[in-house]
């Protein structure tokens, strides 16, 4: 076997190995994606129940919920906190880079308007890229993007709400990959704080499902007799901040599902690409072998001719 033939054969071997790895990664991502989808499903009944309780408590409460500090728009908007939700790992197509690009573009716009930007990032990719660009994130949340728990969302929400209520940030925005399907993800930019009244009092995003109907029927009949422990206002004051936690938790879950979806797609493309490469290389190797055989025959024929 000639040197070129051996080279090509080695290359085929290594491409095959890469293909095996990308296939495995694709399968792992597919399995994790299914689990991530289930977790989004699991959140629905909880979010719907919280919403129902909020309505019930809001009906019974004497005060307007808009009096809570979490709703207050600050008079001037000097500092804006941006939370970028990325993943801990790469190899997922544009998943991480598109969030960072969208976040930095928004930050430039805000800074041009004379505002200060405070960065926070979820995921090692986001943290390391921001740090590399000299935009040190204040909140760094890493190590859980494969499987975010509610406690993670609570920690993030806690720090953001604290910064908002204590006046260190005048607005809080989140950037994350919204999950549409395994093949499609879109960058979403949402304002977390001040809390939008619309997210609470209007159904909107389909969390309610069947809840709104029976709520209206049962709420009217016995809400006068309900005992509140402690009073409704106090319950309401704690229910409302839960929306921030739930919004962040949902964003984390969607981001996780998107990450697995993006990685699955990226790895499928890589596997297909490797397949094409293998075909091309095999063709090249066959050609090299054929050339060598032809060469040998020519030599044999030439030798035989010289004898006669």
């Amino acid at each position: 076997m000639s040197a070129t033939q051996r080279d090509v054969k080695n290359r085929i071997g290594s491409v095959k190995n890469i293909q095996k790895i990308t296939r495995a990664m694709e399968m792992v991502a597919a399995a994790r994606l299914r689990r991530a989808e289930q977790r989004i499903e699991h959140l629905r009944p909880y979010a719907a129940a919280i919403r129902r309780m909020t309505r019930q408590a809001a009906d019974a409460a004497g005060t307007e919920i808009t009096g809570l500090p979490i709703f207050h728009e600050h008079e001037s908007e000097e500092t804006v906190a941006l939370l970028l939700v990325t993943g801990d790992r790469g190899l997922a197509g544009a998943f991480n880079s598109q969030i960072i690009r969208a976040g930095l573009r928004a930050a430039r716009g805000l800074e041009d308007d004379g505002r200060t930007v405070r960065y926070s990032a979820v995921g090692r990719r986001g943290v390391s890229t921001l740090t590399f660009r000299g935009k040190d994130p204040i909140g760094r949340y890493v190590g859980f993007t494969d499987r975010p728990s509610y406690a993670d969302a609570r920690e993030i929400a806690g720090e953001l709400v604290t910064a908002y209520v204590d006046g260190k940030a005048d607005r809080v925005e989140i950037f994350y990959n919204g999950y549409i399907s395994p093949l499609t993800q879109e960058v979403r930019r949402e304002t977390l704080l001040p809390l939008q009244q619309a997210t609470i009092l209007e159904g909107g995003d389909g969390d309610d499902g069947d809840a709104s109907g029976d709520d209206a029927a049962s709420g009217a009949s016995h809400h006068a007799l309900v005992e509140y422990e402690p009073d409704a206002d106090e319950i309401l004051a704690r229910l409302i901040p839960d929306y921030v936690e739930i919004s962040i938790y949902r964003a984390l879950l969607e981001s996780t599902a998107s990450e697995h979806g993006a990685r699955m797609t990226a790895m499928r493309n890589a596997s297909e690409n490797a397949g094409e490469l293998i075909e091309d290389l095999t063709l090249e190797m066959n050609r090299a072998r054929q050339a060598e055989i032809t060469q040998e025959i020519m030599e044999v024929v030439a030798g035989a001719e010289s004898l006669t």
Binding site: A57, H222, Y228, E229, P230, A232, I235, R238
Partner: peptide, 12 residues
């Protein structure tokens, strides 16, 4: 402690 037929309640 809550037993069956408890009064309607919303608690934290």
């Amino acid at each position: 402690g809550i037993l069956a037929r408890h009064q309607p309640l919303l608690g934290m």
